[in-house]
C-alpha cells in the first residue's frame, strides 16, 4: 500500500520520465526522419512536464495576484516561465528540421535514414 501511495505521489514525475525515455527511444532507433523529429518533441514536452511537476504545489493557485491583495498559496512561477521559453525553442528547432526533411526528400527521394545512407554509399562509388 505504501508503494502505491508513493507512486501516486510521484505520478507526474514518473510520467515525465516515461515520456522522456519513449522520446529518446524514438529519436535513437527510428530511421524515419519525421518520427525522429516527433521524438524530439515528445522529449521536449516530457522535460517541460517534469519542470511543471517540480513547480506544482498541492492546493496551490495559479500565479495570478489578486489586485485587492488577498494572499493565497501560489505554485512556483519560475518553472512556468522557463517552459514558456522552452516550448518556443523546441518549435523553432522542429520547423528547421522539417524544412531540412523537405529538402532531403527532394534530393534523395526518401526520408528514411537507412535508404539515405545507401544512396550516399552508391554516390561515393
Amino acid at each position: 500500500m505504501n508503494l502505491v501511495n508513493d507512486i501516486l505521489a510521484h505520478v507526474n514525475f514518473i510520467g515525465a520520465m516515461a515520456l522522456f525515455v519513449i522520446g529518446l527511444y524514438m529519436v535513437v532507433t527510428h530511421s524515419n526522419l519525421i518520427k525522429r523529429i516527433m521524438g524530439i518533441n515528445i522529449m521536449g514536452t516530457a522535460i517541460f512536464y517534469f519542470f511543471i511537476a517540480v513547480g506544482n504545489v498541492e492546493d496551490g493557485a495559479p500565479p495570478l495576484l489578486d489586485p485587492d491583495g488577498n494572499a493565497l498559496t501560489f505554485i512556483n512561477p519560475l518553472p512556468s516561465v522557463l517552459i514558456l521559453t522552452g516550448i518556443v525553442v523546441v518549435v523553432s528547432i522542429t520547423v528547421y528540421s522539417l524544412s531540412l526533411v523537405v529538402r532531403i526528400y527532394e534530393t534523395y527521394g526518401t526520408i528514411d535514414q537507412k535508404e539515405m545512407a545507401q544512396i550516399e554509399a552508391e554516390d561515393d562509388d
Binding site: 508513493d6 507512486i7 505521489a9 510521484h10 514525475f13 514518473i14 520520465m17 516515461a18 522522456f20 525515455v21 529518446l24 527511444y25 517540480v54 513547480g55 504545489v57 498541492e58 492546493d59 496551490g60 498559496t73 512556483n76 518553472p79
Partner: peptide, 26 residues
Amino acid sequence: FIALFVVLVINIMRMPAGLGTDSLSY
C-alpha cells in the same frame, strides 16, 4: 532504455514529493 527508465524512476522515488511549499525548489 528500460534500464534507463528504471534508474530514473528509482531516483525520483527517493525524492520527496507533494511537499508543496516546503519542497526544495520553493
